[in-house]
């Protein structure tokens, strides 16, 4: 087994774990942060799949913008609850 494949395997495990946590975390803010982590791991996976274009877009849009939208929605719902 090459070193690269071991890295891929670890990355794959981290992706599945972070996706699972983002769906199962009991606190919503933690779930959203885990989703942002998942997005950044996805960007790494795109780099490993020799798709730097998608990696760039995923890091900026998938993790950054989606994360900001989700956190903002969470904050607004929280403020309204209070």
């Amino acid at each position: 087994m090459s070193l690269e494949f071991i890295f891929d395997l670890l990355l794959a495990l981290a992706m599945v774990w972070s996706a699972w946590r983002s769906l199962s975390a009991s606190r919503l803010d933690r779930a959203i942060v885990m989703f942002i982590v998942f997005g950044l791991l996805m960007a790494l996976a795109w780099a490993r799949l020799s798709a730097p274009d998608i990696g760039l877009a995923e890091a900026a849009i998938g993790a950054g913008l989606t994360g900001a939208l989700l956190l903002d929605a969470y904050g607004a719902l929280k403020r309204r609850e209070a």
């Binding site: 996706a19 983002s22 769906l23 919503l28 989703f35 996805m42």
Partner: peptide, 17 residues
């Protein structure tokens, strides 16, 4: 519903991969 949006996004990422 907010968690459902998260799940929907995970689904999409899986399809892309």
């Amino acid at each position: 519903l907010l968690r459902r949006v998260l799940a929907f996004n995970v689904m999409g990422s899986g399809a892309f991969l």
